[in-house]
Amino acid sequence: MKLKGKLPVMMLVVMAAVSGISMPLASANEELIAKGKEISFDRKKGNCLTCHQIAGGTLMGNIGPPLIAMKARFPDKAKLRADIWDMTKRNPHTMMPPFGKYGVLTDSEIDAVTEFVHSL
């Protein structure tokens, strides 16, 4: 049990150290944004384009507002993440699936999507 518990931690430390050396913070963020975009556009994942217009998307719906000027609309990134995680909290009638609460996306996927959407 002890070995089992410690090994992942050690690996994490090593990985963190290695990645820390090989990529500076800014590009780590870009990578997260790219990952977020992929998840957002994927029909089996975020599928955001069903309802939202997003730059670079095709065959987009118009049920939700276009995702533009997000930094102005959400100065607080945490609020944006909370909406993506469970919009029904603010509006029980919303069309937006509670991506986090209902497990449509994992927490780390939501982190990436938040990063991407906030960059729009």
Binding site: T50, G61, N62, I63, M95
Partner: peptide, 11 residues
């Protein structure tokens, strides 16, 4: 009802 008339993707 509520969103009818709008588009979900191309639908």
């Amino acid at each position: 009802v509520y969103q009818s008339g709008l588009y979900a993707r191309g639908n």
